[in-house]
Structures are given as C-alpha cells and as structure tokens.
Computed example of a mutant assay.
Amino acid sequence: MPQDKLRTKGDLPQFIDHTLLRPEATSVDVQRYCNEAIDNGFKSVCVNPWFVELAAHYLSDGNVSTCAVIGFPLGASPTRVKLAEAYAVLEAGADELDMVLAISALKDGDLATVENDIRQIKQACGPKILKVILETCLLTHEEKIAACQAAHRARADFVKTSTGFSHGGAAIADVRLLRETVGVDLGVKASGGIRSGPDVHAMIDAGASRIGSSSGAALLSDATK
C-alpha cells in the first residue's frame, strides 16, 4: 500500500502534485516547476508525456516523483493506445501515472471495459503508482461509485476527481464520496479548481490524500499560514 493513501496535515508538502499540463508549456516552465517542487518538498511534478523525460532529468537527484498523464484529458483513446502511452512514459522515467478512465464506456454502463482499461494500465505500471481520473463533473452519483469500485477491482492505487479541463473540478462532496467508497484501500486525489489554503484543508478533511494544483507553491504558503 502506498504510504500516502492516508496522510496527516503535518506533512502538507507531500500532499501536493505540482501540475503543469498547459498545452503551451515550455521546457523552461518544466524546469521552474521541478525546482519549485524540490524547494518545497512536494510529492510529484505532473506533466504531459512530451515532458516526462525532461522532468525526470531535473528531478533525478531529489525525492520528488515524476508523474505523467495518460489518455488525457478525454479518456477516449482505445486501451491499446493508452498502453502504448503508458509504456512510453515509463521508459522515459515516470514514477506515477494519472490515467483518464473510459468515460464513454462508463456512461454506457460497460463496466467490464472500464475495469479492463484500468487493469491493463496497472499491469503495465507494476509497482509504480496508478491514479484513475474519474472526471466527476460528468458523472452521476451512481457512476462515481461504480467507477471507484472498478478502479478498486482493477488494483489501481488512487482515484482522482478531475482533469481540470472539463466544466468542473474537485468538489468536497465528491472527495468525501470517493473516500467513503474506496475506504483506506486506495488514495484519493483532489484536482481542479483548488485555489486557496482553506480549499486544501477542506479537501484533506473530506478524505483527500493528494492535491493536484498548478499553483502548488502559493497553495502551500496559504495553507500553512
């Protein structure tokens, strides 16, 4: 079980995945985010596959993990494409993968496909951490529960609320629901629209064990006031 599935607020920096997923991001931005993550003691830097090798290089001498997104942001790629992407980022140095689940399959009620999609990526990851992005703003209450259960059965390590690229981000009620559904067996990552220290504390109180944010340094400063 990854040690950060449940944390205490005494280790706030280790909650944060410092996230750079803007399509216009540059290599200079990646270096800056990596330096900020090292300086603040964050858990990871999360980047698009294009920048995984560069981020892994900048983070190679520290304790900050390199995280890559897969099937991002729609989750609409066939499993074989997600697998190819997973193998590519793992070879490039990724320590963690955040994959978008097969949202359309979930909406169709095809839970076998949803679960198989996750399971194959987790098998590719091996001991490395896999987080499954549910995109909760697009799901019904029942679909959120079903997605969590599929991720659990497929042996994912985390469920995650959002990509930050749809019409809604993390909601406290959703974080609480995800934690209630997965219990202590999986981590819960809240991501999307978390903009203040009080937001961070509210998400953690609701059950989040990771916080995804493109403003990690400012969030940490505000949350530790």
Rank of each mutant, 00 (worst) to 15 (best):
V30W: 12
E53S: 09
D110N: 14
C137T: 02
S191E: 09
Q31K: 13
E143Q: 11
A171W: 06
Q123S: 10
M203Q: 03
Q123H: 11
A223K: 06
L138A: 05
V28M: 15
A88T: 14
S214T: 08
V114H: 08
T66I: 02
K160A: 11
L6E: 12
L130D: 04
V81N: 07
A55I: 13
H141Y: 08
D4W: 11
I129N: 14
Q14W: 06
K122C: 11
Q31I: 00
S209Y: 01
H201D: 03
H152D: 00
K5N: 10
Y58I: 05
P49G: 01
R210M: 09
R22K: 14
A76M: 13
A102M: 12
K5Q: 06
I118D: 02
S166W: 08
I103Y: 04
A25K: 04
V200C: 06
A102K: 02
A94F: 03
L83I: 14
T224M: 15
H57W: 10
H152M: 14
D95R: 01
K128D: 01
L220P: 02
K144M: 15
G169R: 08
L220F: 09
K82L: 04
R153T: 13
R119F: 14
E142N: 11
G183S: 11
A86I: 02
A92Y: 03
G193S: 01
E36C: 00
C137W: 00
K128W: 02
S196A: 05
T8N: 15
L186M: 13
L21N: 09
V159K: 11
T140M: 05
P78R: 01
G212N: 02
F51H: 10
E91Q: 11
W50M: 07
A170G: 12
I133P: 15
R119T: 14
G71Y: 06
K225G: 06
S209P: 10
A218I: 08
G183N: 04
N116R: 15
S77K: 06
D98C: 04
K131A: 07
A217S: 11
K189W: 14
K122Y: 14
A37M: 04
E36A: 03
M99V: 13
S162V: 04
L97I: 12
G192L: 04
A218C: 06
R153L: 09
K5R: 13
S60Q: 09
G216D: 06
A92C: 00
L20T: 01
T19N: 10
S214Y: 05
T8P: 00
G93C: 09
C34L: 12
F15K: 10
T163M: 11
E85W: 11
A102D: 09
S65N: 03
P127G: 00
V30T: 08
A112Q: 07
N48R: 12
Q31A: 08
L178C: 07
I103H: 08
D174G: 07
G93L: 00
L12E: 09
Y58V: 06
T163Q: 12
A76T: 11
L177H: 07
D17M: 06
Q14K: 10
K82N: 15
N63S: 14
V188I: 09
D157Q: 07
K107S: 02
D205E: 07
